[in-house]
Amino acid sequence: MKRWICLLLAAVLSLSLTACGAPKTETLDIFAMDTYMSLVAVGDGAFDVLQRSSNEINTLEQKLSRTIETSDVARLNANGSAVLDEGTAELLRRALRYSEETGGAFDMTIAPLVELWGITTEHPRVPTREEIDALLPLVGTEHVHLDGLNVSLDEGCTIDLGGIAKGYASDCVAALFAASDLTGGFASLGGNVYVHGVTADGQPWKVAIQDPQKTGAYACTLHLSGAFVVTSGGYQRNFTGPDGTVYQHIIDPATGYPAVSDLLSVSVITYGAADGQGTRADAYSTALYVMGEEAAVDFWRQNSAAFDMVLVTADGRVLYTPGLKDCFDETEGSGYVYQPLAA
């Protein structure tokens, strides 16, 4: 009798134990690429995947940062030419393609103007019209000559991959996640988010888009899996000039001045861990912000198969594309008027 009860108990317990093995969640916070990054992984080998992701991000920063003297980008800017490795060359190819697609609203050759305004430094300043006009002719992808792994820049032209480096990093993390045994996870790389699989509760990830007008509040929430969300907005980083004008950090390649947009923020959503969707989302979000509402909506209509988006306008509307209809939660009491866009 006792023997059998023991056996039963052991059998039942071992059954429940093998069935359990609650999914392991690991988190990792890192400071890289001039921003705060948070990585979360759920499932087998979570810690290992996060370590490799972190290493990958640091390696990328060493290659792509404009301010690290030994980086590929810094050497190219200093010497006017360079031989790149395949990864960096591919990123440059994509940057050129996105510039073309967005009619120059995204442009990596904006670097001389970024430097002039001191946007990313601790001491930004408002340059004179003459200073800006002198540098504007250097902006344009026609100054970048890429042939295989060889790249050269026209005299005075420099490049800044800051607009897509984090998107590219999120692509690399997405690839590591996709090749792993993780059941879920996300990478939040300063305005660039990639969500993989499902949460430990088996649900799609809830990605909240920051309310540009109110810290700690959200404009909306998206339920996503296997997707990139990249938000660009003037509210993220800006400075106030001596006359009280607020200058934000995204420079319009057409004018050389910080973009004056009728949008407060643009979030671009792309899908799938392959094909550089994170880089695309990063480039598009910057470009659409510079374009403004009307041109952004036109651009989406022409490329509606490629991405979804959420626009927060300065006059208090939140516009979203119909592809998000089933995963879009409005924020109650946010004061925004929510409008789905017509295809």
Partner: peptide
């Protein structure tokens, strides 16, 4: 929610139980 100081590399984060809040905030 969290407060992040980039120059100091300090993160102040509020952790909690299963809540209705988002998993990740972008922007």
């Amino acid at each position: 929610q969290s407060i992040v100081c980039l120059p100091a590399q300090i993160i102040i984060h509020l952790e909690g139980a299963a809540n209705d809040g988002p998993d990740v905030i972008v922007g």
